[in-house]
């Protein structure tokens, strides 16, 4: 499913103001934005992204990490990685950003109804999945078992740590967190996220899985899921490539025949299984 932006010229950003900035981890911030024009911020479906423009620096694709039930504001979680995202990290409440979107495909939540849902999030991959989790929790009775798995490099880099704690206390869902390495003060799990897949307890015939994280993490997670007997079409991944226009015009985001900005970023694994693992595609 894809929701078209309302602007007439899709290349011209709409102006938003930052109303809140949350320091999540050392290099990651969550921004809440409201539109300057006073209209609805942005109806979106979990999994979609916006092109965020920072005055004088440029534009980057960033997933929407907020609650789809609250379209009056827009929530994005940004990690400082390069020139634009570093400059983003210096913005404060009151500053302005440009927004184009929302763009792209969404996590197929409706198709998952009636079955189990397994969420596998590596690192910042939890950001686009948080929107889906909000929806799942709001409509809890439509699904059977819900499990959230999150892997981070270290305890300090765990994203949305407070919310993860809440989800762990929620007896209606399963939530597990693991880190690659930790000091002695960490009492949680240490190890790769793929080890959790076998423990998550879902029905492979009835589960829909959403996987997002670094490409290598997604590859190993898919392997682990397949080992559990999950069919390719029940596995959905969010892919990342360079994106400039987000309209299917500039060609940058191609991954095989797919334009990831409009056919993706969320793709069902059976569509891309022949492409995954081919070097430099």
């Amino acid at each position: 499913m894809s929701i078209a932006p309302s602007r007439s010229d899709p290349m011209v950003p709409r102006r938003f103001r930052i109303v809140e900035k949350i320091h999540e981890t050392a290099d990651t911030y969550t921004f809440t934005l409201v539109p300057v024009d006073g209209e609805t911020a942005c109806r979106f479906a979990p999994g979609q992204f916006n092109m965020l423009y920072l005055f004088g620096y440029g534009e980057v694709p960033i997933s929407i990490s907020g609650d789809p039930a609250a379209p009056e504001r827009l929530v994005h979680t940004v990690r400082a990685m390069g020139s634009v995202t570093h400059a983003f990290a210096t913005l404060e409440a009151g500053d302005m950003v440009g927004v184009r979107g929302p763009f792209g495909s969404a996590w197929p939540l409706a198709a998952a109804e009636g079955g189990d849902v397994l969420i596998v999030a590596g690192g910042l991959g939890l950001a686009p999945l948080r929107s889906a989790i909000y929806r799942l929790l709001a409509e809890r009775d439509r699904y059977r078992r819900i499990a959230i798995l999150h892997g981070a490099r270290s305890p300090e880099t765990i994203l949305f740590a407070e919310e993860l704690r809440q989800w762990r206390r929620n007896l209606d869902i399963a939530c597990e967190v693991t880190v690659d390495y930790a000091g002695t003060d960490w009492h949680g799990r240490v190890g790769v996220i793929t080890q959790l897949v076998a423990l998550a307890g879902f029905d492979p015939q009835r589960v829909t899985t959403f996987v997002c994280g670094p490409e290598i993490m997604m590859r190993f997670s898919v392997e682990a899921l397949k080992k559990q007997g999950v069919a390719d079409e029940r596995i959905h991944v969010s892919m990342e490539r360079s994106m400039k226009c987000a309209l299917g015009h500039c060609g940058h985001c191609q991954f095989g025949p797919a334009f990831l900005c409009k056919d993706g970023p969320v793709l069902s694994y059976d569509r891309i299984r022949n492409l995954v693992g081919i070097a430099e595609l």
Binding site: M11, V12, P13, R15, F55, L91, G94, M96, G98
Partner: peptide
């Protein structure tokens, strides 16, 4: 040229 913007990170206007 797609558009021009004037201002600063605190406040800017965009003209197609």
């Amino acid at each position: 040229t797609l558009w021009r913007a004037k201002g600063s990170a605190a406040d800017f206007a965009i003209d197609p």
